[in-house]
Nucleic acid binder design. Sequence first.
DNA 1: GCAGGACTGGAGGGGCGCCTCCGGTTAGTG
DNA 2: CACTAACCGGAGGCGCCCCTCCAGTCCTGC
Lengths: 221, 221
Amino acid sequence: MVEPPLRADAARNRERIVDAACDAFAERGFDVPLEEIAARAGVGIATLYRRFPTRDDLMVAAASRKFDQYELALHEARQAPDGWTGFAGYVQEVCRMQAADAGLADVLTMSFPGAREFEARRTALYHGFVGLVERAKAEGSLRDDYVPEDLPLMLMANAGVLRGTAQAAPRAWQRLVGYLLQAFRTGGEAEPLPAAPTPRQTYRAMLRISGCQGRSQPPQH
Amino acid sequence: MVEPPLRADAARNRERIVDAACDAFAERGFDVPLEEIAARAGVGIATLYRRFPTRDDLMVAAASRKFDQYELALHEARQAPDGWTGFAGYVQEVCRMQAADAGLADVLTMSFPGAREFEARRTALYHGFVGLVERAKAEGSLRDDYVPEDLPLMLMANAGVLRGTAQAAPRAWQRLVGYLLQAFRTGGEAEPLPAAPTPRQTYRAMLRISGCQGRSQPPQH
DNA sequence: GCAGGACTGGAGGGGCGCCTCCGGTTAGTG
DNA sequence: CACTAACCGGAGGCGCCCCTCCAGTCCTGC
């Protein structure tokens, strides 16, 4: 069951593949061609497959690198002066990371039953978040019917906004998060919101989503 | 510039293609293979391409069929007893339609600069919505800093939730909409929310998103 | 009922990404 | 230094979907 140690050059290549995967996933999401990752790593496609037989394996390896960030955010949220600051700060930070990293953010809303250590860290993060929720509820600033499952819900919503607006209105997600935090808070006065996307930005975003791969000319024979 | 009328059989086939496209888009989203649409319509792939040279052309034709529903929803919202009911009812209805129709809902967040009549109807819907917004703001129930562009934002967020939960927690979107409406309303007390997805549902949704196309066995030679 | 033009569908070339096979290369030990 | 096991990478088969070409079919107007 225990893997024999890799030869030095193989280990080096493995590292380079994971590095390349991190970059590629962050820039272009999880559906980049594996060939591109291999090319970025300066490695043959076969080498990539030998080391990571499944796309999931590679995703797990790449994602693990980012857990540090999430754990740091959780740690900071725990030390916030009050429950709401901690809860809201964590939620915002997670969404910000999601916006900054096209693919890897989905990691929190994914499950890889095969990856033990990965799942353990994800579960720990989840428990930590439950703690934030309870603290905020106890001080009365977070509505009672909030449930921790609302975080994945929010991440999925955020992902949808990011998919649609990443190019044209890269700050639109902040407004969504602003609205949602407002809804999560009890007895909230209307607080100022992040700026809305302009009509122009919205229009451009709508163009982007559509196919619009050009080539719509009639055959003009 | 004016198209000659189609031959009777050609017109019939055209109808069947649009019917099939409506069904296919609704069931599986906009990225169904065109070959499948042709097969559903009982028609050769070439026939489909002759009638709709571009995927966008077909999408426009299929989407136009659904405008009636949107226009009906707008009409009803206008006759609501008060501004908030009209605004919230319309928003909910649009999101409900989005949930019921995997692909076509994106239509409202897309733009097809080439399709005149299509764009005109979409624009009319937009203006109608602006009317709902103004009425609700005037009566003081909708926050002042709400902008009409928040509707596409919401639709994108809803699309993200639907993508993630369609199989495992088909009602999750209602909770998102509930939260957002709460945030849109001024001075809102916390109203009861649609049920949250259960942890079990959330877990299943997370599994679904991941690749998980099986086949992760090591080569076991 | 008979041209002839409009229409049809399947075959097939092309691109892209997935994944594997295999001949050549290299690290690392004795 | 020499040898062997581990490692490498490109070539290429496969499946999927896109889109086009063309020989045959079927309306429709006369």
